[in-house]
Structure formats: structure tokens, C-alpha cells
Design a protein around this nucleic acid. Structure first.
Lengths: 160, 160
DNA sequence: TTCGGCAATGTTACATCATAACAGCGGGGT
DNA sequence: ACCCCGCTGTTATGATGTAACATTGCCGAA
């Protein structure tokens, strides 16, 4: 399946279901790997998934603190690091914020379309773009590892 | 001219000359536009150009303060904002750091190869990659404006 | 069973990156 | 002379991220 199109889906889908799907997949993935998706980490994942907009670490913290009084910045950053390590969320570098991964499981660098108006951010998986990135690196004799691709602009809805 | 290949050039070129070229071009570009490349701004540009590694705003500040006692964070950020606005430097989002632009003049989003070992960062201008980005956005009915492309890994020298 | 190791979390403090808000200064036009 | 405006100065604070050490709880080895 290609990316569902978060920004587009945002208008139409049942988001409760969307979150539940993501959490369920996350549990399966972690179970299959022996990675420990603890209640704390799952709660953070759930918070990140509350919307299809990238969420700042301190926003996560505020939300987490409502149910988890001892939460502090390291609490959140550790959970975010774990989730990124397992490929369950991505960091959006140009916003210093975090977003649920729609292709969880297969570790990958995401490609993102970020609407500057509504904030909705869609993760895309574009093979040609992937190839172009690899070719560009290869041409420069550069061994690429992590790839950051973030396009800001206006989503279809906001442009209309 | 294609990007000179900063990371590669780093090993071979006369960097004093490289800085001078960049400053000279910057003066010409600003003069041609009526943009005010003040001594302060030029000094900041020079500091950013001291290496081909992205430099943090507070590193710029430390260096600037040696000759300019009143320098404070806003001093530096204003100069950096000006220089970015004129297309003379880029911000490397994944490092929160700034880098001289090798294609100054033509406003553009850069594409970068960042060596995680030596820090040398090469700006590339790859038409195919550009096209792939535009196509990917178009396919999602997304009106792209600003593009962030940063590939981290090992430069040819460090991989060897 | 007890102990030691280890992963997760708690806790305090701090480092790093960035901006708001207002003041002062100086040149150019009227 | 006066005002406007862009640049810089200055103080304070906001936003993002991490170091370092303490505590807890589980699990396996002796």
C-alpha cells in the first residue's frame, strides 16, 4: 500500500480508527522484534498520533503530564528516541517536531509534504524520488545513510 | 557550473581564495539588488564561510564577539536571516546550523550531502532530483514552496 | 534464595537554539 | 528642523534537547 495520504485522509477518515490501527501495528511490530513497547512509550505514540500534524516534544510532554505526573523532558525524549529507533515515528527536522509513521516496520527515511497553512503533513513513499536521491549521492561518491526530504507549501485543500 | 563540491574541494582548494570569491560575489549580488550588505552582515558571512562545515549560530556569535563586543544572539540571527533572505547562506535543518551557499544569487532550496564523520557538507544541484521532488509534490496535488533535502552519511574521503 | 546485571524510568540541573520587545542611532527626504 | 525607516543595541525570555546520577523491578546465575 502506498502512503494513505495523511493530509488528504485528514478530511475524510475515522481518526479514532486510524490511531487504533497505528497502535495495533506498533504492538505487533515490537512484539515481533522483542522491542519493549511499554505503556509509557505507547502513550507517547498515541499522543503523537492524535493528529496528522507534527507535534513538538513539549506538546507531547504537556499532554503526557495530564496522566503521568512524573513526566519530564527526558521522559518524552527517551520515548521519542525509542519510537524513532523502531521506525514508528519520524522527526520533521524543519519543524523540530514528530509525526507518526504510516509505513511503520520497514525502517526508512521519510519524505514529507508539510502544509504551512493547516500544518497537516503527509508522508509519501516515492520510488523515483528515492532513486534520484541515491543517484545524486552516488554521483558525488557519497555514502548516504539518513535522508531528510521535507517539502513545505500548501496542501490541495488549503490551496483551494 | 555545477556545485564545486565543497567536501571534495576542502581537500584541495585554496580556502582563502574561496572565501574571497564568496564575499566578492555577495557584494556584487547585494549591490545589484540594493540590498545592504553592511560590515556586520559581511563579517557574519565571512565567519560562516570559514569552513565548509555548517556552523551554529552561537559559534558565529563567539567568533563575531572577538571583534564586535556588543554582539548578542539577535545580532547574529538578524544577520543570518538577512543572508538567507538574499540566498547567500543556507540553514541545514538537521543540524540547526548554517552554511555558505555555493550558488548564491539564484534563490533556491539547497540539496546537501553531510558527512557525519568530518562534518564537511557539500551543496549539490541535481536537476533530476529537483524534478523528482517537483513530480512527487505534483502527484500529491501539493503546491511545494520550500524544499529541504539533506543526506547524511560518509564523504568519499571518510569512507576510505 | 539471593545476588548481580540490565533495561526502563525518575529526577535535577543544565546546555543549546531562537525570538520578543523596546531603545538608540543615523541617513535621506520633505 | 523634522520625521521616517532600516539597522543595531540591549534585556529578557521562550523553545528545544541532553548530561548525569538515582531508583525500581525483573530475570537469570550461583
Amino acid at each position: 500500500m502506498a502512503a494513505r495520504g495523511a493530509a488528504q485522509a485528514h478530511q475524510t477518515h475515522n481518526h479514532r480508527e486510524c490511531i487504533e490501527d497505528a497502535l495495533k501495528r506498533a504492538r505487533e511490530i515490537c512484539a515481533g522484534r522483542g522491542a519493549q513497547l511499554t505503556p509509557l512509550r505507547e502513550k507517547v505514540l498515541q499522543i503523537v498520533w492524535r493528529s496528522h500534524k507534527p507535534v513538538g516534544a513539549y506538546d507531547v510532554l504537556d499532554e503526557l503530564a495530564r496522566s503521568h505526573k512524573s513526566a519530564r523532558p527526558p521522559t518524552v525524549y527517551r520515548a521519542l528516541d525509542f519510537l524513532m529507533g523502531e521506525g514508528l515515528i519520524h522527526k520533521i527536522e524543519s519543524l523540530n517536531a514528530y509525526l507518526g509513521c504510516v509505513e511503520a516496520g520497514a525502517p526508512h527515511s521519510g519524505q514529507f509534504l508539510i502544509c504551512r497553512q493547516c500544518g497537516a503533513t503527509e508522508e509519501i513513499v516515492d520510488a523515483k524520488l528515492e532513486t534520484a536521491l541515491d543517484q545524486a549521492a552516488k554521483q558525488a561518491h557519497f555514502a548516504g545513510e539518513r535522508k531528510v526530504v521535507e517539502i513545505s507549501g500548501l496542501c490541495a485543500r488549503c490551496a483551494a
